[in-house]
Structure formats: C-alpha cells, structure tokens
Amino acid sequence: MSEQKKTSVPKPLPVLEGFTKAFYAGCARGELLFQVCGGCNRWRHVPRELCAECGSWEWEWKASSGRGRVFTWTVIARALHPAFADAVPLAAVVVELEEGVRLLSHVIDCAPDALEMEMPVEVVFEAASDEVTLPLFRRAAV
C-alpha cells in the first residue's frame, strides 16, 4: 500500500446528503447547526431521525453559540490515511459545546503539544472545497 502514499490524494470530505447536507450548508453560511428536540429541548449531534431521549419526531435546526471546551484529543503523529501525510502531527480534537453536544474537529491556532483539557475554544469556518465548509475551532478567552 505504501506506494500509494502520495500527498496528491485528496482529503476525504463528507457526502452531502440528508441531514449532513443541512449541517454543512449551515457551516457554509457561518452557522454551526445542531438538531434541537421539539419534545424535550435537548441538543443532539450527530443528526438523528427522532429523539432517543424522549421519542419526539419534532426537531429544528438551531445555531450553536460556537463556544466550547476541549474534551479529549489524539495527536495523529503518523498518518494512516495518505491524504494526511503532509498534515502530521495533527490533533483530532473533540470539543464539547456549551449546549452539551460534542463535535470532532481541529483547533487551528494551537500546536498539538499545547492542547489542554477544558481549554476554551470557539468555532470558525473554513472552506475545504467549493462545496464543503468545515467547522474548526480556535482558542477563546476564558
């Protein structure tokens, strides 16, 4: 497989269909959208058909404050996907947002070895292609 490890391999992108299309369309507009249950008002991620907590099929997209804290992370030191060979070391970071949902992302202005648990971060958006804008995070004031 190693001969296929060329940096020309494009990074994998989400397939824009269903709920995922709406999630990333929000990102393209500068909104970090999550489903909020119409029955119990809980925020949820990833998008689901109905609320696993209360059973309600009612929900609407709401924009998160975009503020959260670092919940956990791994520093990918050796890329196991060829598209990331030039990007390592790269921290894949789980951010817990104020609304309680967690999202996997990157913290773009923080070296991997400077990450700390509970570090405050806020969302920013960056185009990954003509169609896809990814939510990313940067350090925020406490």
Partner: peptide, 13 residues
C-alpha cells in the same frame, strides 16, 4: 461525514 474529514480514520486514533 464527521470523522474522516479531520484525519480520524483508523482504530488507534
């Protein structure tokens, strides 16, 4: 749709 774009692609990660 939510992990691979961030390089989280394999079990150890």
């Amino acid at each position: 749709d939510y992990y691979l774009p961030y390089g989280l692609t394999a079990p150890p990660q």
